[in-house]
Nucleic acid binder design. Structure first.
Lengths: 213, 213
DNA sequence: TATACGAGCGAACAGATGTTCGTGTCAAGG
DNA sequence: CCTTGACACGAACATCTGTTCGCTCGTATA
């Protein structure tokens, strides 16, 4: 089998890709035949089989439009869509996720999965307001991606609501005996010590995003 | 027309999305019918029409599997693939892009376009080594996305190579008379003053990414 | 020259798939 | 009680669409 694709095979591959982009579903053999001025459906079939053996496409027998572009779908799957549900500021609790109508959220951010880890449930994003988190190298306008969770392991960076202080903060979490130490990412800053009943863990920090205008 | 989708309509919509993810092509009416335990194809047809009127899907008449999810295709297009071409550290020049073999770059990050702006050419990403850029709220392990450019407008944050100091740095750029001021993002830090012949602009900062393990 | 093989051709076939239509149920409203 | 409209049923129908098969052509290869 020759190493290079024939001109016709390349044309078919390009056509499928273009068609998929334009229509959201794959072409039929006859559409390929017609638009590429090929005389017979069997020629298309023949070349599709070649493309399949080269592992460039996958064909699903007896299924109309059953052509998949190999590698294309997986590329899409590497992207996670995360709802941007509100903002996070020092003097303001996080929006309650249950109260956020999924249909209302029209703002999303998209990230490749390697940035958020394998577990993709419970992710949400917040826009940072103010400069209360510069000690965590997070500034006004940044976007933080959190994973919803009520507890934390030592050393994890979490968003917590401090009940007495009525404040949201983003710190490393350490449970030490019967007190809790909240450690700023910046080692120069002093930690906060408080009691477990004062902290309400909102979620774990997964990603920080800054978009420079 | 009721505002909310019926349970069945939502199930169908979810099914189409899942199917598309799994197979790369849309389901037939009968596949929807069967997998959702619906008694008749016409019921599916009926509900697909409702979904179409709500502008949630688009149907292509007389075309098998002619269902498109509205907004989905464009959502894919909203993702940019950026090559991760090396690292950036204080005492080390940026990798020369021309020398980077595109085929060698196997690491990519994917971002939604709103994070990188409309112009998507010349983007590349670097992993930050060391703590020389904490004054720009950028730390070891972060990923910075840059747009390749040799000049800069005042106020833009750029990666520059300082010839005399043999150093890479990331600062706000200000051309003031015949000298150049490089201003750290952190207002507490002092700027660097230097001459134009000493600075080699490598690119403009577009996005900063931090992934917390 | 004979054979093999990649590539293409055209037509017929069978199964996959969208469409249509008469009918039925049920709740809301007059 | 009747009407209306949303929703559902099931079956028949008409295409749409993939598959198959016998055939041709040209270029290597033996």
């Amino acid at each position: 089998m020759p190493r290079a694709l024939s001109q016709r095979q390349r044309a078919i591959l390009d056509y499928i890709e273009r068609f998929l982009d334009e229509n959201g579903y794959p072409p039929t053999i006859r559409e390929i035949q017609h638009d590429l001025n090929i005389s017979s459906t069997s020629v298309v079939d023949y070349n599709l089989n070649v493309l399949e053996q080269r592992n460039l496409i996958r064909r699903n027998r007896n299924i109309s439009r059953g052509i998949e572009l190999v590698g294309r779908r997986s590329a899409e799957k590497r992207v996670v869509r995360i709802p941007l549900v509100g903002q996070i500021a020092a003097g303001q609790p996080l929006p309650v996720l249950e109260e956020v109508d999924p249909a209302t959220v029209n703002d999303h951010i998209e990230l490749s999965v390697d940035l958020v880890g394998k577990q993709q449930d419970g992710l949400f994003a917040l826009r940072v307001k103010g400069f209360s988190m510069v000690d965590a190298l997070i500034s006004d306008g940044d976007i933080v991606v959190l994973r919803r969770q009520q507890t934390a392991e030592n050393g994890e960076t979490v968003a917590v609501w401090l009940r007495r202080e009525q404040e949201t903060t983003l710190k490393r979490f350490y449970h030490e005996g019967d007190r809790i130490r909240l450690q700023p990412a910046n080692a120069m800053m002093d930690p906060i010590y408080t009691t477990p009943d004062n902290v309400e863990i909102q979620g774990k920090l997964v990603t920080v995003l800054r978009s420079v205008s």
